[in-house]
Design a protein around this nucleic acid. Structure first.
Lengths: 224, 224, 224, 224
DNA sequence: GATGAATGAGCTTTCATTCAT
DNA sequence: TATGAATGAAAGCTCATTCAT
């Protein structure tokens, strides 16, 4: 779902952006509606013209952010020249998300994935858009007879994304995140997973475009 | 509401148990002190005879639960007859924790690991007790020359635990958790990781004791 | 309970007035935020739109009340035609404050004067504005050679204000306060202090304007 | 009312002493029953075998302390060789009370004098015992024809005690209290009051016994 | 649509007091 | 008498949400 155009749509997008930044800076549980309103230069009441309630705002922030990620994941899957490259770039994407906007990711995991009733449908759809490209990638390049017994594609995806998440979390906790070479590490980890799942490894030749840099650019462009 | 939970020292254990169950059912952020008190059959004020404040209670719940897990992890590492068996049992332990008490795990990861000041020392020690046995296991059985480049032991541990966590989460979300064959899946996933990290695989012969069943037993015993 | 007290800026003044009255009636330590809210016809939360916290409210009540007193004290010092008249009017002012709003005075002495950190600056400034006019008065009219040894101006001020406070307190306790002739008593007490400090006494000729009456008028006007 | 003798009485006296010390150190509003119990080496429940409730304890602490002061005041009035000496010693007593145990004094003024129903009778009696010696002194030495018009003995007492209280309070606030020469200042202030009330001044010849030192001695003796 | 004061339920925490042992 | 765990009524404060303007 794209943001509506025109003034109304712009303002909504502005609120979402401001809220995302605030959430990321302070943790979304510690951001009040008043904070968001103030940061957006609006009054509190106005927020409720755009979002049903706090939950809705949180949800939309996360959906919005994940939309971008989903698009990127789809590109990676579509353009991969090899399994190793594709998985590595997917891992690099995941890493950069966690490093740049881990709070949004947290919201996603806690509020959106776990939500029982509200917004479940668009959230599920978005989750699928983000996580299925990895499955497509694996399905395309892995020979069925090489896949170890008991392992399926969904499991692979879960193991990869979860493993990377945990690895980055530890790195952040140990304050090794600034020194992390995302591209190289992604390639190495991808290699490990290919071994695990019966894929063919490659030597790392060309540099992966860093989604991290792209993200930074986008942010600069928007706030201008 | 349960009947009041015993007297004296037992009462503290009872509160912890009741709180753990509540946290797990509703998410610890959504459980109030009044909820815990009511569920334990006590008045609100009484809680504060046992725990300095809410934070203390949350911490203690998590520490308490993890103590048991740590002990089990240490046993597994000490008694493993092969790498495949050890890793599989470790994964099975992790799975059962996540299936039985995923919220406690969440508390651990978010409140305890991330805490800056309070209880950092005992918490860190406990974390190490839980997560290092896996590293010991891997160090003991993996031949250094078989380990793929760019992969170290800490990374292996993070990838394994994180991957399993995510896999279980997805299973729970898709309501496949009841049908999950923890032992078999653990063995298969362990196999994948051994391939990934250069370990020697084995055929699965004997049944792993399910820590899940043991936990259930303990709980029944305590609340009597 | 009073009817809701006006709108906007008036509301703050209304809360302050209502709080001052409550404090005076029951002792400010025994007045809760809920009490103030109820008496002002507001909900509890609303109070916190006007005052950061309880301490802030208490402080503001006292500062507000003392501002008026300070202005009066300055006028008295500026317009005094003789030392006897000036001191007498200052004593009469002090008496009327204590009779009308002794709790506010108590807050001032205990919370504001004694406070270590918060609002120290404006509070100190206000205290000076209230208590220095008396010193100016004495300095202007007392011949240095007439002042008894060991007595300085600060001491004089403290002895006068403290003595009057205690005298009024006793009168209130013995329920003689209604019958108290503020003007005459002030004149007599002033005379005693002039003797004590080496000042020239005068016969009491004209009536002192009673600040007590003025205060009552202001209150009636405001609450309308 | 003297404390009962025997074990029961001793324990009660011990609690009172401990409570008085705590009150003075931290302000009596900030001392809980639990604090007093802990400091006295008793359990909380036991306190209630000796004191009906918190109010009763506070009251008794103050009564107890004032009993000593009253005895001293009576001695001073009985043994005074001149008005100047008597008043000066009375002022010195008041100063030392305020410097050594201002919290007890505060309790007295706030809780006891102001109390409407409870313990009014013994409190009133004690207040009288403390404050009438000053009146006796003045009545004995002041010639009625020298007393200025409009001034009576009760007023004198109030002006003296209140003035001294305020003076000491200011000194404490300005942290001049350590440097305060109690005997000299008392003499000078007494001189001022004698001028005010028509008494005969004297040169200060002999040193006044410092009640402050005596108090310290007593405390040391008791806690041994 | 925009405002922002008002709301009030809800939270954590304290502490004097009670009472079974 | 002594104990001390249990109590529960407050208290101060927060904040998502509403609504008259």
């Amino acid at each position: 779902m794209l943001a509506p155009v025109g003034r109304w749509g712009e303002r909504e997008a502005g609120i979402l952006e401001v809220a995302a930044a605030l959430f990321d800076r302070r943790g979304y549980q510690n951001v009040t509606m008043a904070d968001v309103a103030a940061e957006a230069g609006l009054s509190e009441g106005t927020l409720y013209n755009y979002f049903r309630d706090r939950h809705d705002l949180v949800l939309r922030v996360s959906l919005d952010a994940f939309e971008e990620h989903a698009v990127k994941a789809e590109h990676i899957a579509a353009e991969a020249q090899s399994l190793h490259e594709g998985v590595a770039r997917m891992i690099a994407l995941q890493m950069s998300i966690l490093l740049d906007a881990k709070e949004i990711y947290r919201i996603w995991m806690r509020e959106v994935r776990g939500a029982e009733d509200y917004g479940k449908l668009p959230a599920r759809a978005m989750l699928r858009r983000y996580s299925t490209p990895m499955i497509h990638l694996l399905k395309k390049w892995l020979a069925p007879r090489d896949i170890p017994p008991g392992i399926d594609f969904g499991m692979m995806r879960d193991l990869i994304f979860g493993g990377v998440e945990n690895f980055v979390q530890t790195a952040v906790l140990q304050e090794r995140d600034k020194a992390l070479d995302v591209d190289k590490t992604s390639w190495d980890i991808a290699g490990a997973y290919l071994r695990a799942f019966g894929g063919k490894l490659e030597a790392r030749t060309k540099t992966l475009a860093s989604p991290r840099a792209k993200t930074a650019q986008r942010k600069r462009a928007r706030s201008g």
